[in-house]
Design a protein around this nucleic acid. Sequence first.
DNA 1: GCGGATCAG
DNA 2: ATGGCTGATCCGC
Length: 463
Amino acid sequence: MAVGKGVLSTCNYEARKFGCRSGMASFVAKKLCPQLICVAPNFDKYTAKATEIRAIFAEYDPLFESASIDEAYLNITPYCAENQKDPQEAIQEMRAAILEKTKISVSAGIAANAKLAKIASNRNKPNGQFFIPSDRAAIMDFMRDLPVRKVNGVGRVFERELDSMGIKTCGDIYPQRAYLTKLFGEKAFYFLMQCYLGLGRTRVQPVENYERKSVGTEATFHEIGGKEEIRAKLWTAAQELEKDLARAQVKGRTLVLKVKLHTFEVLTRQIAPPRAVMLAKDLYAFALPMLAKLEKEIPDLKLRLLGLRCTHLVSTKKVGIEFFGAAAVNQQRPTATIRQGNAGAEEAFETAAREELQEDMNELEQLSQEIADLPEPKPSESPSEDSPASPALHWDCPICSRPHPADDKVFNEHVDFCLSKQTIKEAVQAAPGEALPVLPKSRKRKPGSTTTPDPRQKRLFFT
DNA sequence: GCGGATCAG
DNA sequence: ATGGCTGATCCGC
């Protein structure tokens, strides 16, 4: 399978130039800086600038991929070959061209795949670029010290979960590999292994024929409790959704009601109406029973958010002859020219890395089996490369029950972490209000393991 | 398929 | 109380 790959580049325009996305809520910024002037966003302007910039991208890779209004992936391998420029030169020149022609500064990352390019693009912003050589050792070096949070897909929660088992950087993943599937599932394991190895997708293509999977709307408001008041919000949402569905030219075969209670707990309920819906009155009519049921289940229902969403969409677009004609022409474009396989060192790296991943997975499968075969799943001994005679290498944290390196200092630090203010706050927050309507459930845990802690336990420790 | 939860932009 | 909204995806059941 020849995958045309090489150096990918991701570009982000500088948000500051757009006057928004400072990374801080404006009401917070205003508090910190009362004389701050907030400029209202103007998406038409941003779209116009994005169009100008994309025209320049196209000169470097006509098949570039727009990731969002201010981000794109380019495969610049062919450009570099044809123009005999090295990747860093090419991107330097492209950024200069964009700045000159559009007055927008952009940052870029240059690396062997999309995941790395994205990370690299954040490295020298604003108005900078960062290059990761397409060399196995260089990539492994880069990943080893990279905080997992820097990887797209690792958010606040996953970061904390990984941290609690001693994984802070991508390099920390490998020694803990034996636990990952059990704790986070197969997909997460595969994802984390790719993080450790610095692997990512190398395919870059236009996303023209993207099909939306859902259309929804939701609104936050001041806490309301009256039945009529809530129905009024439902009607508003239904009208809003009708408009959005019309714009998207779709109907929904399922309808999802979403509410946020005064406790901040979020609930969703869905039904499949007998036929696809799109009109506000139908949306309202089919959502109402779900709402009524919730009111029954939760006495004194008080809401701070209500939303409606349609999924399992069916198109209401009229399809004429000329539409099919145009679509067929469009479809030929990407497939015809995208593969310009360039075998060589980079591809060898890719192959080697994938082989290693496969080996690791084989090894892990064995280890998982061995762990599964134990009478009690207690990961207190490391099944990995450490000396077999040594005592327990991991202790289970009494708070979160997760394995942690058996080192006094490290372990104590972790327990402190588990007992941190935040944890206590969550616990006492849950305590004073009487029983929660619906108890939060665990996620990402394989069933059957009786020793896996219920997250509620965290609260029980304190109440 | 349903409902909860996380993540990104 | 370090946001709100939209859409996608994953997980356990």
